[in-house]
Design a protein around this nucleic acid. Structure first.
Lengths: 196, 196
DNA sequence: GTTATATTACGTTACGTAGCGTAACATTAA
DNA sequence: TTAATGTTACGCTACGTAACGTAATATAAC
């Protein structure tokens, strides 16, 4: 009897899950230390104890690996959970963003923004994952604030998001001024002044 | 009488001014078409009709040439000259920025922001020239508006500048929404609401 | 003035290196 | 038997530099 061909994923030698993990961990470490230019296939291979061709069997090029590593290391924002009010939650979440941007992670974020400028696929992945994640989480909190009339509601939520995240990324990328929690507070004072 | 040694620039064969011009023009053209990755020393050399070593005698690497070409092509902002009031001038200048960011020039700006992430020297040059130029020009107009009480004065001018340029760069780099004149207008409505 | 000489710009050629992306083949795990 | 992985080996692009010769200009010596 001719047996049905098994699905690809079940035939042959399975991928060693440690391979993927090792590659991403190596890429992440290289990214944080030396920026995007340090993330070469050769360096990843050596650091991860994996052969170069194997990496190409997972991703198409070095920036793609870097992006995957970055996105996997960057979970959904969750700093706002134990806040009492939506406004406090919003503030807490943006403080967390400021902290991350000011820390070494910030350099990785900047590197990914830079990488996304030259490759469409990377740009799409970055926008749909990292940017959207932060924007959406903030949008939810912002709309809760509006619904509960905790703030003078801004004309448009999307505009407000640009007014909040724009300056944060601007400082991150230009480096003309530090990214602090008080900077976030002053931004919020302008964009969504507390009611009364 | 032992004559003083002449300044370096007066001895020997003078540089052919066309060399520098040709290199920068070639770099600029390559930058606008193919982004930063297209600006290689080899491509510049070929397009400019100049040898590779000659380029290295002027600049240390390809991104440095690209930055020089970009900065030379980007003069000081001047769109605000024939405006009637400081507020109109401010608006006109920022409309010009929006137009530039929405045009092919915008891609060059984004490419330079990206390049500035990996090299300190480039970052400094970019910040001190391009960013400072735009910021300073806008600051002057903004302070005129405040002095004449045309707007509700923002708490800090620098914060206002971040709130204006931040979202513009944010949209340029992320590409999640278009950069239009009405976007500028809505930004200004929030950051410096017109008085009364 | 005319002629040497120093100095600098530029081209040509060549070199070694890094990193890329791919192909061929052997080995290993299911 | 099938597919994952390692090993090795290519060819390619671009880099950055070095060596050499020549062109252009200024200064100095006569």
């Amino acid at each position: 009897m001719a047996s049905q061909p098994l699905p690809k994923s079940a035939r042959g030698r399975p991928r060693d899950p440690r391979t993927r993990v090792a590659i991403l961990a190596a890429a992440r470490a290289l990214l944080e230390r030396g920026g995007l230019t340090a993330v070469t296939i050769e360096a990843i291979a050596q650091k991860a104890g994996v052969s170069r061709p194997t990496i190409y069997r997972y991703w198409s090029n070095a920036p793609a690996v870097a992006m995957a590593a970055f996105l996997e290391a960057t979970g959904a924002p969750d700093a706002a959970r134990k806040a009492a009010t939506p406004l406090a939650a919003l503030r807490a979440q943006l403080h967390a963003v400021a902290d991350a941007f000011a820390a070494p992670t910030g350099r990785s974020v900047a590197a990914m923004v830079a990488a996304a400028q030259s490759e469409t696929e990377l740009a799409k992945a970055f926008r749909n994952e990292f940017i959207a994640r932060n924007r959406d989480a903030t949008r939810v909190l912002l709309e809760q604030c509006i619904a509960k009339k905790l703030v003078s509601s801004p004309a448009e939520t999307d505009l407000a998001l640009d007014l909040i995240f724009g300056p944060l990324f601007y400082r991150l990328l230009m480096g003309h001024a530090p990214i602090t929690r008080s900077f976030v507070d002053r931004l919020l004072d302008v964009v969504i002044p507390a009611r009364d």
